[in-house]
């Protein structure tokens, strides 16, 4: 396969193109890029090693650098979470999993924090029933939810649920929605995580 021609492309374009290409390959497969300066190669190296790929750079006759990045497990399409459709996370409680309530709440906090660290965070987060406690005053995950909004996530909370728990005035992140919209988003999701 011909390498991606990055000659004349300033940073961070080579890294962006490499990341795009890496999303389309399986673990063990390679992406090659031709860059015209050593610095661009070094930036590609930081990205590759940071994402758990293998990196190789060789000088060419024309004083360019031919960079080969071989996708590692963590960098493959499956692990980074990019799929064909929108990722929707539906959350109906303020804790994660079955077990001691303190641990379950800590796990939910850790889960939402982890979403902010993903290369491809979810496009939608839907909160209903006990999940309404996460988007309202007193929630320990508001900062992380704000981060997700900054990265383009749409956060909505079920209005009837806010009303039932008397939380309507206390909503701190995202907007109010109804069950019709929640049902619509869930049924049209590319991938749905239901918690």
């Amino acid at each position: 396969m011909e390498p991606l021609n990055m000659i004349g492309k300033p940073c961070p374009i080579p890294v962006i193109e490499a990341k795009k290409a890496l999303r389309k390959v399986e673990a063990g497969q390679s992406v090659a890029l031709l860059v015209d300066n050593a610095i661009a190669g070094q930036n590609l190296e930081k990205m590759a090693l940071g994402q758990g790929h293998k990196f190789r750079s060789e000088p060419t006759e024309a004083e360019y650098f031919l960079v080969t990045i071989t996708a590692g497990q963590s960098g493959s399409a499956v692990a980074t979470g990019e799929g064909s459709g929108d990722l929707v996370v539906a959350i109906s409680r303020d804790s994660l999993g079955e077990g001691h309530v303190d641990l379950s709440r800590t796990l939910m906090k850790a889960f939402i924090n982890s979403l902010t660290e993903l290369d491809y965070p979810p496009q939608y987060l839907l909160f209903f029933n006990g999940g309404a406690f996460l988007t309202t005053e007193g929630s320990t995950v508001l900062e992380d939810l704000e981060k997700l909004v900054e990265r383009g996530a749409i956060i909505t909370t079920c209005g009837a649920c806010l009303n039932f728990y008397k939380l309507t005035e206390k909503l701190k992140v995202g907007s109010i929605t109804n069950m019709y919209a929640i049902a619509g988003t869930m049924t049209q999701a590319g991938r749905l995580i239901n918690l």
């Binding site: 961070p12 300066n37 930036n43 930081k46």
Partner: peptide, 9 residues
């Protein structure tokens, strides 16, 4: 997100 600049490197 690895959007590094050349000057930083």
């Amino acid at each position: 997100d690895y959007l590094f600049t050349a000057a930083a490197q």
